[in-house]
Each structure stands twice: as structure tokens, then as C-alpha cells.
């Protein structure tokens, strides 16, 4: 079933891709192969490739159970929140929170997760920013 859904998604994606390709403006210069041709080929390939799993699906992949699914959704939420807040609160604080939350969900006891989060964040800040001079997000407090 998963494979069939995957195949349908591929077909829809291919359809959308080819449709968008057909709306690409052509330039002023007349060329034998314009900017649309290659996307048409690739879209067709995607559609053909998507047909196969619909017709001959593999066995069901081993999807995570409810708990695993929630864990992953939570992690995605943490990472999106991280990207959202990074420039508002600065690198060190955002990273400490994100690393601590991920560590906690990976099975570290809460207190140790918090400590390891701070260590990871400060460690990256020291090595990459202070020593190697990489520019990291600066928050209102400059770190």
C-alpha cells in the first residue's frame, strides 16, 4: 500500500512538474531546445518510474509505531522551531535548547540532556566561531 501511495504521489508530482514546465516563459531567442524540453523528459521519467510501484508494489516497509511516529514529528517540530527562532534568540541559546530536546528524546535523562545540550552548543560556538571564525547567528545578546 505504501508503495502504491508513493507511486501515486510520483505521478501527481510528475503531472504538476510537467504542467509547470509548460508555463515556463520562452526567451526571446529562438533555440532548437528551449528551457521546457528537458523538464518534459524528466517529468516523463518520473511518471514512468512512479507507475511501476503502483503495478508491482514491494512489501510493506517497516513504518514506525505510534510512539516512533510521535518522536519523529516532535523532532521535526523542534528543528523547525530552531530555524524559526535562531536569529531571534541567537545561536548559543537556540542550539542549547534544540540539542537538549533532541538528546532527551533519544533517551538521555532530562538533567543530563540539558547539560549535554549546553555543552554541545558552547562547544560548537567555541570551536567554529571563536577558533575557526565561522559566522553564526547573532541574537540580541551577540552570541
Amino acid at each position: 500500500m505504501s508503495d502504491r501511495i508513493f507511486g501515486v504521489v510520483c505521478l501527481l508530482l510528475a503531472g504538476f512538474y510537467i504542467y509547470s514546465a509548460s508555463t515556463i516563459e520562452l526567451g526571446f531567442i529562438e533555440t532548437p531546445v528551449g528551457p521546457r524540453a528537458f523538464p518534459y523528459i524528466i517529468g516523463t521519467l518520473l511518471a514512468l518510474g512512479g507507475l511501476y510501484p503502483i503495478l508491482v508494489p514491494d512489501e510493506r516497509p517497516d513504518w514506525p509505531d505510534m510512539r516512533g511516529m510521535i518522536e519523529i514529528v516532535f523532532a521535526v517540530a523542534v528543528l523547525i522551531a530552531y530555524a524559526f527562532l535562531l536569529e531571534d534568540v541567537g545561536f548559543v541559546i537556540a542550539t542549547a535548547f534544540a540539542a537538549a530536546l533532541l538528546g532527551w528524546r533519544l533517551g538521555t535523562p532530562p538533567l543530563r540532556a540539558a547539560v549535554s545540550g549546553v555543552l554541545i552548543s558552547v562547544g560548537i560556538y567555541v570551536i567554529f566561531h571563536l577558533i575557526l571564525g565561522l559566522s553564526l547567528a547573532r541574537g540580541p545578546w551577540g552570541f
Binding site: A99, A100, G123, I124
Partner: peptide, 15 residues
């Protein structure tokens, strides 16, 4: 253990 390692990997990727 990976539970310390993986958060660090994720954060370094973002950096």
C-alpha cells in the same frame, strides 16, 4: 552513546 552524538551531528549540520 548515540544519544549524545546525534544531537551534536544535527546541530553541526545546521551550523
Amino acid at each position: 552513546p548515540p544519544r549524545y552524538l546525534m544531537p551534536a551531528v544535527a546541530m553541526i549540520s545546521f551550523v
